[in-house]
Design a protein around this nucleic acid. Sequence first.
RNA 1: CGGGGCGUAGCGCAGCCUGGUAGCGCACCUGCCUUGGGCGCAGGGGGUCAGGAGUUCAAAUCUCCUCGCCCCGACCA
Length: 575
Amino acid sequence: MRWSQLFIPTLRENPAEAEVASHQLLVRAGYIRQLAAGIYSYLFLAQRSLLKITQIVREEMDAIGAQEMLLPALNPAELWQESGRWDVMGDNMFRLKDRWQRDLCLGMTHEEVMTSIARGELRSYKQLPQIWYQVQTKFRDELRPKSGLLRVRQFIMKDSYSFDLDPAGLDVSYEKHYRAYRRIFDRCGLRYLVVEAHSGAMGGSQSHEFMLASDAGEDFVVLCGKCGYSANLEKALAHSSAPQEGDPAGDLEPEQFHTPGRKTIAEVSEFTRLPDTSQIKSLVMTADGALLLVLLRGDHQLSETKLAGVLGAVEIRPAHPEEMRKLLGADAGSLGPVGVKNVRILADSALEKRRNMIAGANRDDYHLRNVTPGEDFTAEFHELRQVAPGDTCVQCGAAVELKKTIEIGHIFKLGYKYSESMGLRVLNTAGEEVPVIMGSYGIGIERILSAAVEQDHDGDGMALPVPIAPFAVVVTPVNSGDTAQRQAADDIYQNCLALGLDALLDDRDERPGVKFKDADLIGVPFRITVGKKLAQGKVELIERRGKKLSEVVVADAASEVRSRIAGAMPALAQG
RNA sequence: CGGGGCGUAGCGCAGCCUGGUAGCGCACCUGCCUUGGGCGCAGGGGGUCAGGAGUUCAAAUCUCCUCGCCCCGACCA
């Protein structure tokens, strides 16, 4: 296409509101414009790129036998009430009423609609397995949209759903998705991680997330460099680091001491001259309305996800100050487990077998020393803490590291949650009616674009991978007033098109600097510059990544680009 | 929902404290010039100063309210 006729509104300066690189660059390069908080218009370049991403996704989904559909974004409330998620989703769901005052919502995901289709039509095990998918706009009323296209309120998702007769069948569908996802992200040129994930409010057992390491991300992943263990922080397990100081030996009795004004672990540590690891952190939480006392080692953080998992609870929150005082008779900062009878006590496993630690006394400004779990109080021990740097791998014992990541894909084994609540059953070979076992699999289309920008950019702009760049190559005559250059550039451009390359001709009447800057900014992987060397029959070929420059003869320019693309991505040759 | 910040031309910002003609850079239009990294010169167009109410002879500027947007935290299939 000819640049002079395109709408590519590039900006010289970064938009004031953009913080992360992908946001700044997508706006500056004229890909997107914001319409409202977390709502974006995708202009020509973004749409081109998103269509390429979607095409890759389609090809790989089709390759595992998945069937594409398109479901309504506008859903009736009853459907979501059936699965129970009308209430669970809370304010994250966009809700509206029609002219008859009937409740409707905008779909955040489509388990309900898919299940409702399936239950009307799937009757026999002979019709299974099925994998259905769509590429559809989703709506989530995020508390805080941010980071450009990374956290938005309206976005495009490829979501697929598998229906199988039994867990073994689900394993197969899950595995197919796992492999398809790897191919999709490979083809998109992303360097990603696959980690074990928490299945959250979706319910279900196994789950993996596909993550791309980036400081712009919002999820933490725990990684073991030695054995390859990797998991989302919400779910990750690790052995706790050893206490900084050994516990005093002996069967000592708890002993109260005055700690005026010392409330935080750090303050009590300083006062007692014992490290954080010798303190017991006591948190009063409520789980689905019931109060409980949660104990952790002083330096550890509670994982609410793990706590919710242990309790089977949906809503977890810290208790209010009045609730704490009513329950234990003191304010936060002086709470502890000794003598507490009226509430369930859960302790993190890092407190097991510890002795003579420091804890709050349930009396304002007093603590206890010589508190021994299991003797001075009883608790249920579970792994409740968040993994921290310095912890060691459960598989191999090496130190684990934490990485910030962007989630680009997520696959779940749903189990029977929706088939049971919504009555999706088929007859098995024995003629018995059994619920269908389901899986759910999502890919954020815009997140692939954003993640690619985060992954590959420099001070001049984006350096997108060829398969998802809006154009593969741009042909740039240096001097638009020079007829020979213009003609040669046009010829090369036509050659590129003839070879099937997605080519752009920068025929604008601009100074060379402007054209170079714009080409770098929008991230076209190859540039053919037609300039002074044309007199010797040569042009320059520049790779956007690394700005590698070489000279080629005019007639070979297009084919050289094609062969470099093919050479860089052998896996793509067979598509 | 807690904390912080911002709203002045399409974009980036100054002006506000100390009330009195609305400004700068980029972009845009016209002409000339120039052509290997956002060129130069000259001329020009473009503003309900987020909205509302108040104080005042006079409000972008002071006061109050509302809305929008961004950031941190909490939250997140």
